[in-house]
Structure formats: structure tokens, C-alpha cells
Design a protein around this nucleic acid. Structure first.
Lengths: 370, 370
DNA sequence: CTGAAAGCGCTTACAG
DNA sequence: CTGAAAGCGCTTACAG
């Protein structure tokens, strides 16, 4: 119980009869270590063991050295649990990859009131870590700009753009995944496709639409109609059906008149469009997929939060779709971050999405199409 | 893209026309801050904002200040996933509590070959954190002793003892939970109980047995038989049934002859005893609970890892039992750790276990008992 | 109320 | 191959 000070390199130096600088060379390993005589090395290491030495990482990182800590910052609170469930695969990927490369992981989860900001109180907590993986939708752009200005290494999960700066990120390859689904449909014989997307201007929305156009072109078809749902990405849950059923019913009529046999739906974020579409189709007597093949460009709303008034707007169909490789994205982010730490250039990686077979696609009805 | 150095307190001092020490007083808040003239304060804060200042936490913690980081160290690897599933509730509790108290959480998950040790290379990584929550069974006692010697604040999840030292831990209250189950059984009319425990000398095993004896005494019954299963806590899975069925069959016969109507089983760690007992009982024509009420003092083996040869040794019955408040233990550990950081004394907390109703208990058969 | 100064424990050129 | 020295950015007595 002696309140003995922790041993420092000075203590070791004294015990081993060398200078503190030499101790540092031995302890920190790396290049310097090789230039120390073997017997000196041994003496230092012995003394270190004897004294129960352990580096002070604060001092080390103060000198600009590495901490061997990666950070994970989430712009949205990771709690409560249903959010947590969404983020969990990302975390898992980040955790595993971090452990595999021999780093520890610092979860920046300390709660601050209001929207989460990196630089609260002008304090950038992230810098305890050597670099950081960033996650979340409601990104504070001022924070991001500040991080760039500070030259702090970070990698975003999901495509993010900042004018005039090249950010590093890993993002799902929505474009290719969407194009592949188009080709699957045309391969089944569909010749009239329609495309439905939310009314926002986010990167994922644009990427998917570009994939749709690419697929249509690859299939040798003329341009196909794209419809923007005249509703924001995330209307209040209890109003979604009211807001959507009118437009969707109208669209369904239009498509039928146009001979459309297949539909691709970009679900947007946290969206209930696909559930609403399912209900509207039932009412309109449109069978999926017999009359209309439907493909979902992402995940349906999670059934987890299905309760109360919301429960009716959860789809239980097994949509033909693709899913995000969330764990893979987390892993890829870590590896990209490591490159950055080794002074690699800023890079943008895409990771393939995973196709899900589902049962909402079949050949077009006989006699349909051009 | 100017490689501008991050602003330091010196820069602020220059900009605000004060000394760096004054900047420190203002920035670090606390007592000092109040003794600085209001206009000086303002000037410093303005300059700090203008320069985009953020404290260097490494420097701060080098001076012995707090990092506002708590660590979580697991002696066993948290991966692969089935282990992860076991530990997940602990992690969740630790994470939530840590976030709630305004700290960040450092997961010490960096992989080292061999059994996990804190002091690999004589380096104690834990000290980046202000304090640490420790988790896991295969504890390295040398590590623990070293931590104590270093006066590093830590809290164990689960009862741990180190000769001559008072460790801090939070542990499930096995004793009370077991006693309560005894009283439940005697309340139903049982008068002859038997107790079955694994052949180890661990704290949880002793705590439960003590709870059994206490319950028996509280119920006003004479001492009841305790049987030690002549098999280690975790025999190889493919041999468990062979090893257990003989002894269990014999015990079953003994109990029947003795008029035992209720059995309490300490499942030990990662144990398959309860599943083996279920099978043996079926073969011996003993119905649970009609002939014999059975209470499980903990969790049955997780059905998650049920595959191959192992599958037959997973019980699917809804045993009357108690479960560990894993999230609660994690939370309690964090709060205890915080007390320690505020120079609180080492403490040992127990957290109640949660009773699970189950359906393996009923009144004794008519005509049975003394 | 503010400043000068020491020092936390390390790493890293730079001499020798 | 080893040592002396500077300095990373802070906090904290201690003077004034």
C-alpha cells in the first residue's frame, strides 16, 4: 500500500545505469531500439520489469507519438436501444477491425445536451485518439471543417462532401447495387420500369438514381420515368399514410396506364414509403409481384419500433432488395483510417451492397410491355 | 490546407494580451476561473473561440488532470460473437452509465497473442483512462496485484479476492437469490430439499451454497443434503453426458429414496448439468416438476452455441431460476469507479438477481414428505 | 487579480 | 553506440 510513485524512465535509467534517453530508445522500440547494444537493452528491460514500469501514454502522445487508440464518434446518440440496434453492426465492424490491427477503441459517447458536437466548449475530445471514425447523419459541418483545419485524421462512414476539401469516407456502393437490380429486372423481360425516390438531395439518393439510369442504358432501353415523391424524407410517422396514399394511388394508376411492369423504390431514410405502397397496392387491386414487380433499394423500416399507431405502417414482406454491409463498412473505415495515420492520401472507398433475393420480383405478366 | 499548428494557450495568451497561466485558469474552469476579472475572462474566451482552440487532453492528463475517460478491460476476448453475446449486456450497462456521467469509454480490445494480460511488454495500457472496469473469469492475479501496487483505480465485475488487499467489485447477490428460492419452495410445502453444486471452490459457488443453508435455516428446517457433482465445472462438451449420467442417475435414486421433493441446482460456469439432469430424469421416469421441483441457480447454457454433437445437451425448458442483472452490474461498476476516482474508499457492492418464474416448480406430490 | 516558473514523462534531433 | 538538452501543452503552487 506504499503510495509509491509509478516508475518512470528516469527510475529505470538510474537502476540500469544509463541515460533516460537510452531507456526511451529501448522502450519505444522501433528504429532506435536496434541501435542500442544488446547488453544495454537487456539491462534496461530487466530494470523495467523489476520496477513494474509502464509507459505514460499521455506523455507519449504529448510528444506527438501514437497512442494506439482509434476513436469512434457518433453524431446521433447511440442510445436508446433501437438506434443502438441500427448502429450495432457498424460498431461491431469497427471494434473488430480495431482490435485486429492492435489498437484500442475509444467510444466518444459522453452525453452533451443538445445536438452532438465535436467541439463543445472549444474542446476537441477526439484528439485523445490517433484518429477517428465518424458516424451519423446529422453531421455538423462546422465541426467537420474544424477537424480538417486541425489536420486531424478521420474517416466518415457514408459519403460526405465538404466544398473544397477531399474527405475520406467509406460508403455503400448504391449505384452498382441499383444498376444490378435494373439488369435483373430487364433480364426477366421487363421493358417498362418506373423509379420512385424521396424528395431530398442527399448523396445516397443521387447515387441510386444514377445507378438506375446507368442500368437502363446498359440494358439498351430508352430513358425510363423517374418520380419524385412529393413528401420529405421523414414525415411524422402518424401522418405518413395520409400524406403518401394520395400521391401513391395516382402514381400507381399512371404506371398501369403506361404499361409499367416493374418499380424500383428508393426508401430514403427511416422511411415508410414501402409499407404505404404495399397498402395502397392492395386497395388498388395491384398484386405484387404478379402485376407489378417491386424492388427496394435498401432496407425496409425496421419492424423493431413497430408499436402503437406506427405498427400499421411496417411492411413484413420479403422485398427483393439489397442491404448495407454495415459491419464491412465499419471494418473498411478502420483500415482506411490506418492508412491515413501512415500519411496515406485522403481516399473514398465504396463497399458492395449485398443483394437479397426476396419474393417481390417475377417476369412481367403475359401480354404486358411493348 | 495551410499546415497551421493547432492553437495553444500560448497563442491565446498572445492574442488576448495576458499570460498563458491566466489562459489556463480561464479555460480549465474550476476554482481558478472565478478569480479572474470578468473582462480578462471574456477576452481570453473570445480569443480562444477566434483561434478555434481546443485543449490538448494529453498535456492536461500529463499534469495529473483527468482525462474523462473510463476504460473497460476484458480478460477474455470479447469476440467471437457468442462470447460477445454473453458480454453484451455488461458492455451496454457500462457504456450507458459512462455516457450518463459525462465520460467517454475506452474499450481495451487490442488483440495480444495468448491469454490476455494487462501488463504486456511491461506496459500498462489501462492508464490512458482515469480508471477501469474489469471483466472476465480468467483473471491474471499478477496483473491485479500490479494494478493495486500502481494505485490505479479499478472495479471488478464479479466478486474477486486478493489476499491482503481490499478490491472494489460489484457482484450479483447469489446468496440472497438462492435463499429466496429456498423459501419459495418451503412456502409451497417442500420439506426435503437437495442441493447440487459443481466441484469447484469459486466465490459464486460458495455464495450460493451459503444462501441455501441460510434459507433452510430461515425455514426452520434441519440441515439438508448438499451433493457435489464429482465432475469439474467445464468438462469437454462431447463427454459431458457420459460423465454426468452415471452420477446423476445415482443421485436421483438416492433423492427418491430420501423423500426429496425439490432440488436446487448450481449450474456452475458454462455448464450442461441442467440439460443432462433433464435427460436423466426422463429416462428414470422422474417427472419435473410433478415428482420433483427443480430450481436453477443461474442461467442454463446458452442455446446459441447449440450445434452438432452439442445440440442434444441444450435444455429448452423454462426453468424456475434467477438471472444476473448484467446491465445493472455494468452500471453499478461505473458508479463505483466514479466514487473511487473521487478518492472514495474501496467498496464491494452486491446487486440483486432477478427471479424468473419458469414452470419447473410446484407443490410436492400428495403423500410425499415427512 | 495576474504573471513567472517549474515540472508532468516522454521523444527526437543532435553531439560526441 | 550513448548522453545532454530541448520541448510537446498544460496545471499549479508561489510571488507580486
Amino acid at each position: 500500500m506504499s503510495p509509491r510513485r509509478r516508475a518512470t524512465q528516469v527510475d529505470i535509467a538510474r537502476a540500469a545505469g544509463v541515460s533516460q534517453a537510452t531507456v526511451s530508445l529501448v522502450i519505444s522500440g522501433g528504429h532506435g531500439s536496434e541501435q542500442v547494444a544488446e547488453h544495454t537493452r537487456t539491462a534496461v528491460l530487466d530494470a523495467a520489469t523489476r520496477l513494474g514500469y509502464s509507459v505514460n501514454t499521455a506523455a507519449r502522445s504529448l510528444k506527438g507519438g501514437r497512442n494506439h487508440i482509434l476513436g469512434l464518434y457518433t453524431f446521433e446518440s447511440v442510445f436508446p436501444t433501437d438506434q443502438r440496434d441500427f448502429y450495432y453492426p457498424f460498431l461491431l465492424g469497427v471494434e473488430r477491425a480495431t482490435a485486429e490491427v492492435g489498437y484500442d477503441l475509444l467510444l466518444f459517447s459522453s452525453v452533451t445536451p443538445g445536438p452532438r458536437r465535436i467541439y463543445s466548449d472549444g474542446i476537441n475530445r477526439l484528439k485523445v485518439a490517433d484518429g477517428c471514425v465518424l458516424l451519423g447523419r446529422q453531421v455538423d459541418h462546422a465541426d467537420l471543417a474544424e477537424l480538417v483545419r486541425d489536420d486531424f485524421p478521420f474517416v466518415f462512414v457514408g459519403r460526405r462532401e465538404l466544398p473544397g476539401v477531399e474527405l475520406s469516407y467509406v460508403a455503400p456502393d448504391y449505384g452498382t447495387a441499383t444498376r444490378d437490380l435494373v439488369l435483373r429486372l430487364t433480364g426477366l423481360g421487363h421493358r417498362r420500369l418506373a423509379y420512385l425516390r424521396p424528395d431530398d438531395d442527399q448523396e445516397p439518393t443521387r447515387d441510386r438514381e444514377a445507378g438506375f439510369r446507368a442500368g437502363v442504358a446498359d440494358a439498351g432501353l430508352p430513358d425510363q420515368p423517374v418520380h419524385v415523391l412529393p413528401v420529405g424524407s421523414s414525415p411524422p410517422v402518424d401522418q405518413v399514410l395520409d400524406l403518401l396514399s394520395g400521391p401513391l394511388t395516382m402514381l400507381l394508376t399512371t404506371w398501369r396506364a403506361d404499361g409499367v411492369t416493374a418499380l424500383l423504390v428508393d426508401p430514403g431514410e427511416n422511411d415508410r414509403t414501402i409499407a404505404a405502397l404495399e397498402q395502397v397496392a392492395v386497395r388498388a387491386g395491384v398484386r405484387i409481384p404478379a402485376d407489378l414487380s417491386v424492388v427496394l433499394l435498401g432496407e425496409p423500416s425496421p419492424p423493431l419500433s413497430a408499436r402503437g399507431a406506427d405498427a400499421e405502417l411496417v411492411s413484413t414482406r420479403d422485398w427483393t432488395r439489397f442491404t448495407l454491409p454495415r459491419e464491412g463498412l465499419g471494418r473498411a473505415a478502420v483500415h482506411l483510417l490506418l492508412d491515413l495515420l501512415d500519411d496515406g492520401p485522403a481516399r473514398q472507398l465504396t463497399v458492395p451492397c449485398l443483394p437479397v433475393e426476396g419474393d417481390t420480383v417475377c417476369p412481367p405478366p403475359v401480354g404486358a410491355g411493348a
